[in-house]
Amino acid sequence: MYIADETWPELGDYFSDESLALVPLGSTEQHGPHLPLATDHLIAEAFAREAAERTGYLCTPTINVGVSPHHRQFNGTMWVDAPQFRDYVESFTRNLTYHGIDRVIYVNAHGGNIEHLREVGRRLRDDEELYAIEWMWNDSIPELVDDLFAQNGPHGGPKETAMIQHLHPHLVRDDQLAAARDGGVPDVEAAETIKYGSRTFYDAADNTENGVLGDQTDATAEKGARMFEEATDQLCQLCEWLADQRFENLMPKPHV
């Protein structure tokens, strides 16, 4: 169920019976010469909408701009600063509690959002108001990703390329796949910006001239479809697990 497609009386029926919502989040940032800036939020929305369709749980509108200042050197990248992002997501989520939601899954497709979503979840849980957890699609199927790609990226690599080939093939610049591979680096280690155990880089541009990593020519729509199906199954199982938990068991343990 997508919240924006429903009327308020129809949503009253949902809130009287269910207390779980899916919140998709991504970014609007560079993904190399071959993928659109919308890559992350398109992926997040696709997973959340599909899981909501299969399970009947509620999906909210997508948060399209995330914490992406590390991509700022590339044309068009948009971002919000981390404190403002956390405050916005917290306010957005607290809005859901007003309607009776007490558990949320942040369906996330941007690595730069992860630590901030975890912090928001902690704030809400510490207030014993709501239980919110972050879910990242590729983290739910790590073995499959490793099996499908010899060099998966991470950023703008073949796993994201394959996903967009599956979801929105018209947005992939297929004639730029080889250029993406040749103008980037295979992985962070190849960029030689890890020195004696220290990450000496702050921005994507410190590692790769065209903003991406991995071998994009290894991507296919068929691989994207397989990842989408298996990760969606994981998300649906997570929804059912979370919905079955007693709320008090999700809250912080008492002081010893």
Rank of each mutant, 00 (worst) to 15 (best):
H168I: 02
R86V: 09
L22Q: 06
L177I: 13
E230V: 15
H71W: 08
D146T: 14
D126C: 00
M163T: 15
A219I: 11
V188Q: 03
P69N: 05
D175Y: 01
E45A: 15
G184H: 03
P24M: 09
M163Y: 02
A243Y: 01
V185F: 08
F149Q: 05
L124D: 09
E128H: 05
R103G: 02
T28C: 12
M251A: 12
M163Q: 08
T39M: 12
Y2D: 12
I3F: 13
A52S: 14
A51S: 08
F92M: 12
A190G: 08
F15G: 12
V212Y: 01
R49M: 10
F92I: 10
P61W: 06
Q30P: 05
G76V: 03
N113S: 04
R226G: 01
E192P: 03
A180N: 00
L124M: 11
G156H: 01
H168R: 14
R103M: 07
A205S: 15
N64E: 15
L11Q: 03
G157L: 05
E134Y: 00
L148V: 03
W241S: 13
L25F: 03
R49V: 14
T62Q: 00
D215C: 02
S91A: 14
R86C: 08
P169D: 05
L242I: 11
Q84E: 07
E10D: 13
A162D: 03
A82H: 06
I43R: 00
H99R: 10
V80E: 00
A205K: 11
G26I: 11
Y2Q: 14
L20T: 11
L213Q: 09
V256W: 09
A4V: 14
P33W: 04
G183N: 08
D126M: 08
R72Y: 05
Y196H: 10
D17L: 07
Q73E: 13
G100D: 04
R94F: 08
V107C: 07
V212N: 01
H34S: 08
D146A: 14
R72H: 07
A82F: 01
L167N: 04
Y2E: 14
R173H: 15
H41G: 03
N152Y: 09
I43S: 02
L235C: 10
Y88C: 12
T28G: 00
E29P: 04
A204N: 09
H71K: 10
Q234H: 10
R246Q: 12
E53P: 02
A44V: 07
I105W: 05
P24G: 11
S68L: 06
M227T: 07
G66T: 12
L130I: 07
E134Q: 09
T97V: 11
D5I: 04
N207E: 06
R122D: 09
G32M: 05
G66K: 09
A231D: 08
Q73S: 13
D127Y: 00
E143A: 15
I3R: 12
P83D: 03
A178F: 05
A180G: 15
S27Q: 04
Q216M: 11
H34P: 10
S91Y: 00
K253S: 14
